[in-house]
């Protein structure tokens, strides 16, 4: 496999609750990314539905075998596609999911495991938490998907990289909040620092795809981009604008970073497991006493 992969990030502004319109936007961006010879195009969290759905959740939910979803999976014949929507399971449970599709097939589905329900967020009211965080192999490399809030929990990139991921896809719908005397929202600054730090700590490439647009006064700021394992931004999209940006990632950068600063190599899984086991049994004991 070639070392260099050309990645496209579709920083779109989904229309709230309008699946057809958003599906059309997805197909357009896939086509544009393919024309410009990207190998992967990454869409934001809930790019197919919009974010502040509330009771619209019930109407926009799709099963993985729904023709709308199948049409996007089909569109991955010439270019890999990472997209996100409200997934309905066989049991009719609702998840916030992201799919990695390649060569016309679903390679991996990640169901958001951390559903924020604080401040302006109310996700757990409508959706069920996913219970897995798994890396997956594609084109001879391992990747992993984290959806927005998932990435604000350090255990998640830890679990993915310990399973072998060298590439993290992070679709997001991050709203701007806390404007201060800075150039960006406080939430944007937090994300940027977080991703730079993760990339360096875990020696990975990170692809951050955050949406833009306004919903009921809430502003999604974009600022998507790719961070290399040295913590530098390979490409960064502008704030507040709909755009398709491209960045090339070279897996030899991961090799170099992990040799130079072998933090992940030296990570002591057995130490972690021992402590977690002890904490788990202490917790179980306490539960028993109560």
């Amino acid at each position: 496999m070639p070392h260099v992969q050309n990645i496209a990030i579709a920083q779109i502004s989904p229309k709230l609750g309008d699946f057809d319109a958003n599906l059309a936007i997805h197909h357009q961006y896939i086509e544009r990314a393919r024309e410009q010879e990207a190998q992967v195009v990454v869409f934001p969290e809930l790019g197919l539905t919009g974010y502040l759905l509330q009771d619209l959740t019930f109407e926009v939910a799709r099963r993985l075998d729904h023709p709308d979803i199948v049409s996007l999976v089909e569109a991955s014949r010439d270019i890999d596609v990472v997209f996100s929507f409200i997934e309905e399971s066989d049991q009719h449970f609702i998840y916030i999911s992201s799919v990695y599709a390649s060569a016309g097939a679903i390679v991996h589905v990640h169901r958001k495991a951390y559903l924020p329900t604080y401040g302006l967020f109310d996700e757990k009211r409508y959706a069920k938490e996913g219970n897995q965080v798994e890396s997956f192999a594609v084109h001879g490399k391992k990747g992993g998907i984290l959806i927005c809030e998932d990435a604000w929990h350090v255990s998640m990139p830890y679990l993915l990289t310990m399973q072998g991921a060298t590439l993290l896809y992070i679709p997001a719908s991050s709203p701007g909040r806390n404007v201060m005397d800075e150039h960006d929202f406080g939430s944007h600054t937090f994300w940027r620092q977080l991703l730079q730090m993760y990339a360096q700590l875990f020696g990975v490439h990170i692809i951050f795809s955050n949406r833009v647009g306004y919903e009921d006064g809430v502003h999604f700021y974009g600022g998507s981009g790719i961070v290399g394992p040295d913590g530098h931004w390979i490409v960064q999209a502008g704030v507040g604008e709909e755009t398709l940006v491209f960045g090339a990632i070279d897996d030899r950068d991961v090799r170099r970073a992990r040799y130079t600063t072998p933090l992940l190599r030296d990570e002591r899984l057995e130490l972690m497991v021992r402590h977690l086991r002890r904490m788990e049994s202490a917790r179980t004991d306490n539960t028993r006493v109560e």
């Binding site: 701007g176 404007v179 201060m180 005397d181 150039h183 306004y214 006064g217 507040g240």
Partner: peptide, 22 residues
């Protein structure tokens, strides 16, 4: 005074975008 200070160009662009979009 420091805590209440906002970046005027950035805030203005967000508010303009809000009006246009909404």
């Amino acid at each position: 005074e420091q805590a209440l200070r906002v970046n005027a160009p950035f805030t203005t662009s967000v508010l303009e975008g809000f009006i246009r979009d909404e």
